[in-house]
């Protein structure tokens, strides 16, 4: 299902605070579906926080506070993700996230991949196996790990770990992927594979990318926004 020219995310009058410190001030913007939207800006401006607003992950940070509205197109319906009846696990299954530092859980590659499915209550082993393989293939990782699925995920190289994390986020079929500087801790070759992967991602979901690597943004992004002094500006 391709949603050309549809609005995926709509942010209205968003302000964000850490304690008394204001990170964003009255931000309003839109992002298109099935595009790669990139946010650039100097570090410490709250780029990661901006991503976490889309899956409400910031709510686990003490003293953080948000004002304003965020609507995301989920299951073809513009959903106010801060509405009271939104289930956080459901939201985070629809809005996947990959962090700057790859974060495999201390278990085998297979268990890492199956983890989100188990969290979602899927118990059918054959179905799980099938999905694990498909997601690993999608992340260009299957051929490298198919013979050692039972090995500890932390024994993989940095680039492989990051691809595992992308595959793990993909396995539950998110509609929106949040990528927080996904290649910043990788060497050029590993980063190139991940860039290729990100370009393919937009066929199946909307990608929202944070990076401070301008060349990478130029190669990947359809739309670029800059985060500066608590405001979002188109570039």
């Amino acid at each position: 299902m391709v949603e050309e020219d549809k609005i995926k995310i709509e942010i209205e009058n968003l302000s964000f605070f850490y304690g008394e410190h204001r990170i964003f001030h009255d931000v309003s913007t839109k992002m298109m579906a099935n595009k790669i939207t990139a946010v650039v800006g100097p570090s410490g401006q709250g780029k990661s926080t901006f991503l976490m607003i889309m899956n409400r992950l910031w709510e686990n940070i003490p003293q953080a506070r948000l004002e304003g509205h965020v609507h995301i197109l989920l299951k073809n319906r513009m959903t106010d993700i801060y509405a009271r009846d939104v289930s956080l696990p459901d939201l985070r299954r629809s809005v996947g996230m990959v962090f700057q530092k790859s974060n495999p859980l201390p278990m085998s590659i297979y268990k890492n991949m199956a983890f989100p499915l188990k969290l979602a209550g899927i118990k059918n082993q054959a179905q799980i196996e099938e999905k694990v393989e498909a997601a690993l293939r999608d992340a260009f990782l299957w051929n490298e790990v198919k013979d050692r699925l039972s090995h500890d995920a932390r024994s993989l190289s940095g680039g492989q770990q990051q691809r595992l994390c992308i595959a793990r986020a993909l396995i539950i079929g998110p509609e929106l992927m949040l990528l927080d500087e996904p290649t910043s801790s990788l060497d050029a070759r590993a980063a190139a594979i991940i860039e290729e992967l990100i370009l393919l991602l937009k066929k199946r979901c909307t990608v929202f990318l944070v990076s401070h690597h301008m060349e990478q943004i130029a190669r990947l992004a359809d739309t670029v926004m800059a985060l500066e002094d608590g405001k979002i500006k188109p570039v």
């Binding site: 686990n60 696990p89 996947g96 996230m97 962090f99 974060n103 969290l119 539950i172």
Partner: peptide, 11 residues
């Protein structure tokens, strides 16, 4: 805190 967020981000 990064480790606390891993599973939450996966639903």
């Amino acid at each position: 805190s990064e480790d606390r967020l891993t599973a939450l981000a996966l639903g």
